[in-house]
């Protein structure tokens, strides 16, 4: 990396980044303590960020600071331009209710935690109910396609294949009545299963592509940033 000062903060960032990459990739050779140390380091850092960021970006500036009246800027004489808004005390209600969740640790009072869990489940179910309808309706209506599209042989073929796959896959998950051996439903569900196998293959291929992309990004970092930064040590 041209122009990067040796032992500067940015140099150390890149140096440590590359070192961590090598430590994690050492697992490819074999399981080793070096890899384990960095794996735990990564988990610890991730867990800390997940806890601290909601506190730092939301809980403190938008809930606790106004509640404690610390978001008001005082005049030099110590007085405030506006009085403390008592409505902020209402924040204590959801906060207190949420904190009941910690009673899950007490066998005697764990029923209090169940109130919070029940409330969360209710909110989640309500949101999901609405969300699923909004999300699925356009997909459902899109599946009603014309089998013959005027002037477009390709689109007609596409739609016929789409409906064929849709019905055969549906038939695979249709268990409402007994299937006769060599019956239409058995054959149809076999085709449906084969189609799904093709889909799983596409998922698997895409997964390989995604994993390779992760590796190539790290290689880009090692070649374009880490190696030039490291080579400054003996320049």
């Amino acid at each position: 990396m041209i122009g990067l000062e040796l032992f500067s903060l940015q140099w150390f960032e890149i140096f440590c980044g590359g070192f961590c990459v090598l430590a994690i990739f050492s697992f490819l050779a074999k399981e080793n303590p070096f890899y384990r140390i960095f794996e735990h380091l990564f988990i610890g850092i991730s867990a800390a960020i997940l806890i601290m960021e909601p506190i730092r970006t939301f809980l403190w500036p938008q809930a606790l600071k106004p509640l404690l009246g610390m978001d008001r800027i005082p005049f030099p004489d110590g007085t405030y331009p506006e009085p403390y808004a008592m409505s902020y005390l209402l924040f204590l209600v959801p906060m207190g209710f949420g904190l009941l969740y910690y009673f899950i640790l007490s066998p005697r009072h764990s029923w209090l935690a169940q109130l919070v869990i029940g409330f969360s489940l209710g909110v989640g179910a309500g949101l999901s109910f609405k969300g699923i309808i909004v999300e699925m309706t356009p997909q459902l209506t899109d599946s009603f396609r014309p089998l013959y599209v005027v002037g477009s042989f390709g689109e007609s073929l596409n739609n016929i294949f789409f409906i064929f796959v849709l019905l055969t896959v549906f038939s695979y998950f249709f268990f409402s009545f007994k299937r006769s051996p060599n019956g239409l439903m058995v054959k149809s569900s076999w085709i449906g299963r084969t189609m799904m196998m093709g889909c799983f293959g596409a998922f698997f291929g895409a997964t390989i592509m995604a994993r390779m992309a992760l590796l190539v990004e790290r290689l880009q970092f090692m070649i374009a940033q880490w190696w030039p930064a490291l080579s400054q040590l003996w320049r």
Binding site: Q139, C199, A202, F203, A206, T207, M209, A210, A213
Partner: peptide, 12 residues
Amino acid sequence: CTAITIPEAYIY
């Protein structure tokens, strides 16, 4: 989307 989620994202 990432490559893993292409088959699902394509539906949308």
